[in-house]
Amino acid sequence: MNQQAISDLITKMADDELVLGHRNSEWTGLGPVMEEDIAFSSMAQDQIGHALALYRIQEEHMGGPDPDAFAFLRPAAEFKCCHLVEMPIGSYDFSLMRHFLFDHAEAVRYESLLQSEFAPLQQLARKLKGELKYHTLHADAWILQLGRAGGESYERMQAALDTCFPLACGIFEPGEADQALINDNIYPGEKVLYERWLDNIYRVLVKASLNMPDPAAITPAYGGRYGQHTPHLQPLLEEMGAVLRLDPAARW
């Protein structure tokens, strides 16, 4: 097995979860209804927990670094997250649409990892299956509700979809070592996941009366997997590591 390729796959998955978990946690105290405040907190916990579980796989099975140092003190250029997760929370419409698109992408990815030949990923996928189901159930329920409500709500959700869709396509940016990972049955590769994802989100969007942009007509937001990020990532990372950097020798 190509250890470096597996490690890179894990890093991009973990970085996505960490950064989106960070963003979702920013909804604390700001949700449009208290129940959504709680839901976004809950998802943020899950996502940050998934990131930790992935960094731990690297640490325990691949001789990787300590998860705290790796996650909180790494320079932005070494992050492999996609642009979608870096964007500020914006309004609830944007954050909800991002949650819908991201969690469906995560669902197909972990679903595929149930068959992975890399045992630690396969075990993690089994463990997270139940949690991920609730994320997509939550997202679908809200997308349907707000899409079908008409008026301002519909317009906001359609606009959020138009904004988020090219960013979300960037989740599936092809990796250099995809073919090696496919050959080793680690996962089926980004292209396959992308197509499954399109099918799944399309089914919900149609029911919600929302028009999915034509995938052939948009430019996916690529670059994140190769360390090219939006200007939003650097300040986020500075904030995330601010306390740890006060005294890097200390235990906190």
Partner: peptide, 29 residues
């Protein structure tokens, strides 16, 4: 406390703080 979730030092503190603040909002409910 919520404003410190994004700055909490390390995974253990961060996860505990989000869970805690979430509980508080839940108590409000």
């Amino acid at each position: 406390e919520g404003t410190w979730i994004t700055r909490a030092p390390g995974f253990k503190r961060k996860l505990a703080l989000i869970a805690k603040v979430q509980d508080e909002v839940g108590h409000g409910q």
